[in-house]
Design a protein around this nucleic acid. Structure first.
Lengths: 338, 338
DNA sequence: CGCGTTTGATAAAACCTTTTAACAGCACAT
DNA sequence: ATGTGCTGTTAAAAGGTTTTATCAAACGCG
């Protein structure tokens, strides 16, 4: 039977019902100032009874902190953004912070519009996310009166930035293959334009040394298929393992290998990258792959923007979060299914 | 050289710089009340110069409309939610409305937390989205002081709800196959628990009549694969077309057909459902499928919540938005590639 | 009993904007 | 000269909360 009236309950209603002034009510509810324990209890009980909830707008207006942040992304359909955003939202809701989602579609006009809306709303900070190719924001984000955190994206030199640790992730994959006794490891990955592709490839080359070969192409299944056909058609030794730059590529690779009657994992072991479950789980055999811990990335980005908005110091520069190896059945060794 | 100070510019700054009162400044900027054209121009110029932007919190506090809405979803990794949300955000940003993204992970506690946060923020409305299985919200959404719009989800009887038109979508697929001369059409779809699966299957049965068969299973590739194996192993006439309940299933179907050396589309035509590009584009041959127009769904939901929040009437009940047939190469007829 | 100190409560200001009502000035008609 | 109507401007209130400064009462102590 709480809040039956038409109007929202205000702290004024609480004060009146509890027979105190609004200042006392405020103090009692927030444990500020000096309040008698008995009064405090009464005020709180009354507030509970009439269903009082403080107006965040009024609160924000006064405190100059809106307890909201904006997430600016140009990755609309992305499987990268949403898990990340969920991580951000998840960690921030417990701190009473809400998240505005702004999809820019890579359109500068839209980005500008969203940015202005966010500033007007006095957000405490902004998280900018990019797809992996377009690492730069479609709008000027430096010299803003609020902190900005970059994820999957490049900010100015001294900004706070988060990436997955592509170098370590690639090493994880290669080491796993080596431990299983594979020695002729091939790397099939996406376009050379992508920083992530270059880093992973370099890490792979460093780990494998002589005879290693990185093939750049698209982030597509088709490319994986095509690359395998090329490699198995030409003369010379064939690889006994393939490390793929994405799960999609790995899927194409596996399909092509099957077409060639190459046994997986007996003849060739395959590792992917992304742990995009809907793909990795459905390949036959299920794909061993590298998980970028997107949710954790979101957590860290959320906590960073939270600290920054409070004025607490956060180490600047690029933080790279470790990836995780997810073992399924495309490499052979542990035969338990996941 | 605008806004170099530390403080945000307020309308008070504008008024002072233009030599008028704040009321006049406000009137001039918003075209309210009576203002001399010359004064109005001057105020606007000054506002522009010093980089004044009105504080949305103060504005919302007074007008009791925050020009923000909340999107409550339990579909974290979903390919359904994000395109939809992008549609909502896209259509609303032009009306000066921002969108809070709240991922509930289907956790009632989290849902409650988010809901309270939204109410505290005085959002003008809420859009609730569900995955297709769990159609009911994890939290009480009726009897709220603000309007709610449901998408992919069931609200109370008189609520405003949007779904794709599964019935029409299925008919679209079947009609397409029939027009191409196919007569023995099989339907392989997801779990019977899903309302969408049941509707599509019924529509298919109605259109195909005698001999039609709907096979329920999972929304997985594996199920598509398995179903095809079952059908082609048993005696009797084989289908010359398969209508699948999702693109993932279609993918499994296509893989299984290839394993059986059945030609696509010559021997069997295949239609999917979802137009999930990353799958539909990559199958061989590329998949003809049904697009649910998720972005348009988002547009409509956004406009609906906008109208409701202004107190304008919106037709209650379930609105089903038409699906669209996307022709690629898995059915044969038009050979142009897309 | 007078004085300083502590306690508990409150009035008022502040945050920034929009809106209402009032006011001064002026032109025009009576 | 008085009244009427219009124009442009402004003071003030309102919206809901937190914080600062003030105040009254009670208390302890010499």
């Amino acid at each position: 039977m709480k809040n039956t009236g038409d109007r929202r309950r205000t702290i004024y209603d609480v004060a009146k019902a509890a027979g105190v002034s609004i200042s006392t009510a405020s103090n009692a509810l927030n444990d500020t100032g000096r309040t008698n324990a008995e009064t405090r209890e009464r005020v709180r009980r009354v507030a509970e009874e009439i269903g009082f909830r403080p107006n965040a707008l009024a609160r924000g207006l006064l405190s100059k902190r809106s307890h909201a942040i904006g997430m600016l992304t140009n990755d609309t359909y992305g499987r990268l953004t949403l898990p990340m955003a969920a991580g951000v939202s998840e960690v921030l809701v417990d701190h009473g912070v809400s998240v505005f989602l702004c999809a820019t579609n890579n359109d500068p006009r839209l980005a500008q519009l969203h940015l202005e809306a966010l500033l007007d709303r006095q957000v405490d900070g902004i998280i900018f996310t990019a797809t992996r190719l377009d690492l730069t924001p479609p709008v000027q984000l430096s010299r803003l009166p609020i902190p900005v955190v970059y994820v999957f994206a490049e900010g100015p030199a001294d900004s706070v930035t988060f990436f997955p640790d592509d170098e370590q992730g690639a090493r994880l994959a290669v080491d796993h293959l080596k431990e299983l006794g594979r020695s002729r490891i091939l790397h099939i990955t996406g376009p050379r334009d992508y920083l992530a592709a270059r880093i992973r490839a370099q890490s792979y080359l460093d780990a494998c040394g002589d005879g290693a070969e990185a093939m750049f192409g698209d982030w597509s299944e088709e490319w994986g298929h095509e690359a395998v056909q090329t490699v198995f058609a030409r003369p010379g030794a064939k690889p006994d393992a393939i490390f793929c730059g994405s799960d999609e590529i790995a899927r194409g690779v596996i399909d092509a290998l099957r077409d060639l009657n190459v046994e997986i994992p007996t003849d060739v072991a395959v590792v992917g990258f992304d742990n995009w479950e809907v793909v990795a789980r459905q390949t036959r055999p299920p794909l061993t792959t590298i998980d970028m811990e997107l949710k954790e990335l979101g957590h860290r980005a959320g906590l960073a923007i939270l600290s920054l908005s409070k004025g607490e110091p956060v180490p600047a520069g690029i933080t790279r979060l470790p990836c995780r190896l997810v073992v399924r059945q495309s490499c052979g060794s542990p035969l338990r299914s996941e």
